[in-house]
Design a protein around this nucleic acid. Sequence first.
DNA 1: GCGACAG
DNA 2: ATCTTGTCGC
Length: 226
Amino acid sequence: MISAPRTIAEAEAVQDRLRPLVDLVGPGPAEPRTVAGLDVAYAEDGVRLAAAVVVLDTRTLTVVDSAVAVGRVAFDYVPGLFAFRELPTLLDALDRITTIPDVLVCDGHGIAHPRRFGLACHLGVLTGRPAIGVGKTPLVGSWEPPARQRGAWTPLIDGTETVGRVVRTRDGVKPVFVSVGHGMALDNACSLVLTLSPQYRLPETTRQADRLCRAALVAGVVTDRG
DNA sequence: GCGACAG
DNA sequence: ATCTTGTCGC
């Protein structure tokens, strides 16, 4: 890692510096063949963590590659600066996969962020890969509840900008918040999320990644000293 | 000033 | 994120 910010001001400066590098034009791969899910789990001390990257075949939703990395939180939790906590360990995990995924599906937001630079943008810019954010709860923006049916959606609007979509991935189940991270159009991002969520609320990518990093913690991969 | 606030 | 029992619904 290069410059690890230590203060809120430094972290915000990093986001402001990288934000112009976000690609909001590229539509993304027409037919993503592999998709990576990323997630982290925290140890009981709340300091050590395990990050997992799981690469799935988009057609079969089967795991074709995966990796785990362990580390320590790199920043206090501050809404809007969440990425700095997990970024170093997530990047370590990404370094350990041998596949180059067509899209990164991140557990958090992309441009649906106060400074339009959430975790998905950060990971997209740093890796140069198309990336999207799938959040379980909103960070910014207002919206109307989508219709009850799976596939229904409403725009997520912050001020005068549409920063994402509120997407129903299961009938009558709480929707997810999808936003562009890097190099992928919102339409395509939402289609992909639905493809990745045939059965559960969250995409298989994040479900598998969540499973893997939790298993890593149980397995004691994260030990003393970390 | 008061509340909201990804994971 | 993580701490946690029962409960509603298919």
